[in-house]
Write a protein that binds this DNA or RNA. Structure first.
Lengths: 242, 242
DNA sequence: CGCGATTTTGATCAATGTCAAAGGTGGTGG
DNA sequence: CCACCACCTTTGACATTGATCAAAATCGCG
């Protein structure tokens, strides 16, 4: 498959490139790579030599604390760009693990720099992408720091809901599928899986949710959004940064 | 004062520029600006037209939730670059407020894009800077999500300690000055100021801290770092990104 | 059918929040 | 120089959220 046919190009660092310019990306292609669920893409503490665009599947980024507790810092969907860090040669601060089978487009880190040099718009685009992820990180921080368990869960579910709707064309109904366990939610929200479970039950009883993570519905998105002050609007404009 | 004499140039987007190239930055200079403590630099919900390099003083970035609770998402020291966001024309997601009198170097957002176009290395640098801030955000998220009150406080104090030591040449002793109240700590850590107070007392009793935020000492940095698994190493290499 | 991974539930506990009030401290105007 | 005031810090009593420990109940799957 060629970059020209890439389904997520509009969301990636490649977005500013014209069709004709895509060959620079192809020239660094390592070959797209498929990994099974529950495999690590890169690991905390290790030095990786590649960055990745997610072509398909879900990935989570997490940090392991010294006592073994886990904090999931981001869920990544198709179109996400992972592995970029301030010092490319430093060991990674977190682990990227596939939540589903994934398809990745790996790019050698040296290729990345070369691409930036030849197509500066890509560097600007990169900055915008990282800035967007940072906004998400700040929102998560505010959620974990200042919301109640119910608020955090509502917030995260809504966020994933709109992201899934945007990324895939799965734009139908109030029902989506999340490849997550309650423990994943807990580790992303700074809670216990037990407490997540109880809180989900209450939310079901209150009629705002239905079903389970595998295939659940947000019965009352508006009410949920209202009770949690959810802000869906985090995007990168077409013309990079302007 | 000229960019050539800038004390924080090595940490900013300008770092990749040679002395001779600095005039492009100067050409967009709005004039350096001084603000008093407790004034807003830009505000959540409003569209700003500038980004800023902090030349001197402390700034905090915070989000206000719908119920009025505050989450501080970052403390910014001289050399920091604030106001950049994925969509430059979108309203800001957070407020930047001066904690001390500050001196800023404002840059019109359009100037930023123009600079990126003419000096692509600056865009790469920008991406690295944002990526570094993102790593901090992830670390804070892990701290707030998974550490005990004492761990969070220890972690933040250590982080600020090394940042202060690095940024200013105030490299002496175990004592630093923080222009923060206990409420600031609380709002950054997802705690209550009352609880921060109690926890600080215990830490003083345990002999790891001394003094107050205005001028406090870390009596036992190693013990503190050990008990909280603190990781000081978040940096951007000289040659941008490689 | 049987097994490992989730989900669910109960009982209990610890950490942190809430409410309220009493000291401190520095700055300002008289 | 003092009195007063706004803002912090400190402390107490008590409430609550969410954690912990432990065990069933389910579910997906080979």
């Amino acid at each position: 498959l060629t970059c020209a046919a890439c389904g997520v190009r509009g969301q990636t660092v490649c977005a500013p490139l014209g069709i004709a310019e895509l060959d620079i990306v192809e020239s660094f292609r390592v070959g797209s790579r498929k990994l099974g669920a529950h495999t690590d893409i890169f690991s905390q503490g290790e030095v990786g030599s590649e960055v990745y665009t997610i072509l398909g599947g879900w990935v989570m980024l997490y940090t392991l604390l010294e006592d073994g507790r886990r904090q999931i810092v981001d869920f990544c969907l198709p179109g996400a760009f992972i592995g970029f860090q301030p010092d490319l040669d430093a060991p990674s601060k977190h682990t990227a693990e596939a939540l589903t089978p994934v398809e990745l487009y790996p790019l050698p880190k040296r290729g990345l720099l070369s691409m930036f040099a030849q197509h500066p718009e890509m560097a600007v685009r990169m900055a915008c992408i990282v800035a967007r992820d940072q906004v998400f990180a700040y929102q998560h921080l505010a959620s974990v720091g200042r919301r109640t368990a119910r608020g955090r869960i509502a917030n995260l579910l809504l966020e994933l809901f709109v992201r899934v709707r945007q990324s895939s064309l799965e734009a139908s109904g109030d029902s989506i599928h999340l490849p997550l366990t309650q423990e994943h939610l807990a580790d992303a929200l700074g809670l216990t899986s037990v407490h997540v479970n109880r809180t989900l039950r209450v939310m079901r009883e209150d009629g705002v949710l239905a079903g389970n993570l595998g295939a659940f519905s947000i019965l009352n998105p508006d009410r949920l959004a209202e009770e949690t002050g959810f802000d869906a609007d985090v995007s990168i404009p077409r013309g990079p940064a302007g």
